[in-house]
Design a protein around this nucleic acid. Sequence first.
DNA 1: CGCTCGGTTGACCCGTTTCAAGTAACGTGG
DNA 2: CCACGTTACTTGAAACGGGTCAACCGAGCG
Lengths: 246, 246
Amino acid sequence: MRNNISVLKKYIASQAISKCASCSLRELCLPVGLDAHETEILSDLIEHKCKIGRGEYLLRAGMRFKSLYAVRNGFFKSYILDSEGRQQVTGFYMTGELLGLDAISAEIHTCETVALEDSEVCEVPFERLEEISCSIPLLMHQFHKIMSREIVQDHRVMVLLGNMKAEERIAAFLLNLSDRFEKRGYSATSFVLRMTREEIGSYLGLKLETVSRSFSKLQDEGMITINNKHVELHDIHRLTRKISGY
Amino acid sequence: MRNNISVLKKYIASQAISKCASCSLRELCLPVGLDAHETEILSDLIEHKCKIGRGEYLLRAGMRFKSLYAVRNGFFKSYILDSEGRQQVTGFYMTGELLGLDAISAEIHTCETVALEDSEVCEVPFERLEEISCSIPLLMHQFHKIMSREIVQDHRVMVLLGNMKAEERIAAFLLNLSDRFEKRGYSATSFVLRMTREEIGSYLGLKLETVSRSFSKLQDEGMITINNKHVELHDIHRLTRKISGY
DNA sequence: CGCTCGGTTGACCCGTTTCAAGTAACGTGG
DNA sequence: CCACGTTACTTGAAACGGGTCAACCGAGCG
């Protein structure tokens, strides 16, 4: 009896914490601006907490599109595979960010998406999201903002790839991560890179050796310390100046 | 009297042809899949036919976001201006394509958008578009597809900027234009470039001299003829092979 | 008609890639 | 828990592609 109650309690607790209403990411994710009732409706259609182990694929290119996925915790990369098997990383995704937006247009996923650490996602069935956003204008609007933000972010990468030198790209990359960590309540100046030099290079249009050299250069100049995957930003101002002009 | 009637007739005619229902771009633009009644509702909120002369700006970075714009005819470029005044072209837009999607997220336009030839656009007030798409699910869905398509297109540019060599970029660029012209009923193999070499270079992450050299090279290899702004594609297959692998 | 702007081409230079060697961290199985 | 093999990372030297600088040409426009 005792035991049963404790199991039940645990079950209720796990349900509770997985709801949007009590999710720490509310303010970064789809429910921004929704009231309690609306949040509940949204929450009900979402499959909360799918676990994805490190190295596991959440999405494969060619998969039929059914759902978007919100990162609940963890870290993902998305990439496009060319016919010779090379990767072009199209983005890194952290807590509160929405995966799979590229697939809406053709109803087929175009990116491979893999967890770079043990992660959890919330599955958002897209058809149902569209249905309920008819009756929750704020949700629809928030969704549009999220899609638009993805476009803005992609434009930033285009500027980076089109105009910046290697060191500038790395500086921009670190500052972008720093920003996003800070928004999520983590340190803006000290964090761990979840991806390899090769993955960074693929994202930034550089070879891994160039990434490594650029890190070393920024370290020599005293702006950062880099120790394997651990980064410390010592002089955000100077890093920013390095890319100012873009 | 005679005169008045003729003026009236002209007015009615101009109204009629400017409606979505009779627009030749229906199948490329927002009304895809809508029935007559729905098309009418959409059409009513759109300000049809704003003329933008060559060299005039449709949007400026920093402008408050109010509307999206569908290109009715003509040709536009969008670009981001860095603090030193350099341009990074983020896209070229032709008939039926939707401008201003980047501005939804921050409610501020981030791109400068200028007509490269005398053009006309339809203004789509965004708040009202969101309102009516609550009652026209197909319209909402079509809008989501258009945004998603923009993301996919940006990803393609990222691959191009991240991995391809100069000549490959030019080949990819020409094939992309060819495709889009063909979809609009124009020749896939013979068309006029509306933009300068410098603008092409900015879009493709190359200097104008490199663009020029790459055109010459492709011409020497017999794949294209290029005469000022006029291009002929002689061997689409070979051009495609040049970029296959991406 | 002449000026300006856009485009082409050549020569040289610089930054990134490529190739190569060596080292450090990590995960696995004994 | 250690030894091993594997993978990730760093650094150097040489090669190469695209950038830069410069001269010239041609088309379009006032």
